[in-house]
């Protein structure tokens, strides 16, 4: 599997300004940029690790931690806030066993909060990848998560 990265490094080694597209394609391949990956890229591109990490941390697109298969975005906009978004978030944290911003150890879910998803009529609302779930109550949370867990189980 690391040979894929070698191939990518080979592809961009000679290209001027190749570090960013290399990081983009590597992340597409691996899902995130681990320290090991970054070290490999640094030595392959003949750059310091500081330089590579510097670039990787500058842009929003790059993730240095593994991310879940499903990204849960809990809306914390005003409309959702007054309708109990904080309770939804708390239920999520409890059910997943992670804090906001973190990913479950089995890499199924990443829990994030966002400013507004723009579905205020459905408040409180969350998005799991591309699906919107609205008018939530905290007791619906386990049920919804179970659906996605099931999906993963089938795929596996």
């Amino acid at each position: 599997m690391s040979s894929d990265i070698d191939e990518l490094i080979e592809k961009y080694r000679q290209a001027r300004g190749g570090l960013i597209p290399l990081l983009q394609e590597t992340q597409e391949l691996k899902g995130f940029l681990s320290r090991e990956t970054l070290e490999k890229i640094a030595s392959g591109m003949n750059l310091s690790l500081a330089k590579v990490v510097g670039v990787a941390t500058f842009y929003h697109q790059f993730h240095l931690e593994p991310r879940g298969k499903y990204i849960i975005r809990v809306c914390m906009g005003t409309a959702c806030h007054v309708r109990g978004a904080a309770d939804i978030l708390a239920a999520m944290e409890k059910e997943l066993g992670v804090r906001v911003g973190d990913t479950t150890p089995d890499l199924t879910f990443t829990l994030e909060q966002v400013a507004c998803l723009g579905a205020c009529g459905l408040a409180p609302v969350i998005m799991i990848n591309e699906d919107t779930h609205g008018k939530l109550t905290p007791d619906q949370v386990p049920e919804i998560l179970a659906k996605y867990r099931q999906k993963t189980a089938v795929i596996h």
Partner: peptide, 16 residues
């Protein structure tokens, strides 16, 4: 309605 609280709408319109 809280749905009409402008802050959310603006965030939405801005972020769209």
């Amino acid at each position: 309605q809280w749905d009409h609280v402008p802050r959310t709408r603006e965030l939405h319109d801005l972020e769209s």
